[in-house]
């Protein structure tokens, strides 16, 4: 087959490269943004991780009464203690690990704020939740994050 005039196929192909690249980049970005904004995995509320997840979610949402409901019966803390805490909007809480020994459990999390104070990367701080199995399920014992001291008074 013979063609008359200059062959413009390769030029057209070359012109398509930036268009394909831009479309590809936009697609990749969209997929990544979709993947990172999906809701977090919901842990079973009957497990220690699930209780900590519900507690942390409630604390960050400002629902201190719901959070205080997850504290163990003998806990020195109450909803009024949680009312006094201040948390950054960008606070993220990652699960690091958990161990269960009989009626006691430990859930380790890493609390960080992104971007942190360190421009070269702030990996946050590890915090440990200590849980006790009660008749109504796992409950958080001691003085849990984000609290440092508790008065336990409801008024």
């Amino acid at each position: 087959m013979t063609t008359i005039g200059p062959d413009r196929t390769s030029e057209r192909r070359r012109a398509l490269v930036p268009v394909v690249a831009v479309v590809g980049l936009v697609a990749v970005l969209a997929v990544v943004l979709f993947a990172v904004t999906r809701p977090a995995k919901v842990w079973d509320p009957a497990t220690p991780q699930g209780v900590v997840q519900t507690y942390v979610t409630a604390v960050l949402a400002g629902d201190t009464v719901a959070a205080a409901d997850l504290l163990a019966p003998g806990s020195p803390c109450a909803a009024t203690d949680l009312d006094r805490t201040f948390l950054d909007r960008d606070t993220r809480v990652d699960l690091v690990g958990s161990t269960v020994q009989g009626t006691q459990a430990q859930v380790r999390v890493r609390v960080g704020v992104d971007p942190g104070a360190d421009p070269l990367g702030d990996n946050g701080e590890e915090r440990t939740f200590r849980l006790t199995r009660t008749t109504s399920g796992w409950r958080i014992d001691g003085i849990p994050w984000p609290l440092y001291e508790c008065t336990g008074r409801l008024t």
């Binding site: 993947a35 990652d94 699960l95």
Partner: peptide, 25 residues
């Protein structure tokens, strides 16, 4: 940041809570 969020979510135990601030930024 986005790659870090991806790895954090799918290569480890992942976040207990998610916010929109980090992804938005």
């Amino acid at each position: 940041g986005l790659l870090g969020q991806l790895l954090d979510r799918y290569a480890t135990d992942g976040p207990l809570v998610t916010g929109s601030v980090e992804a938005a930024r």
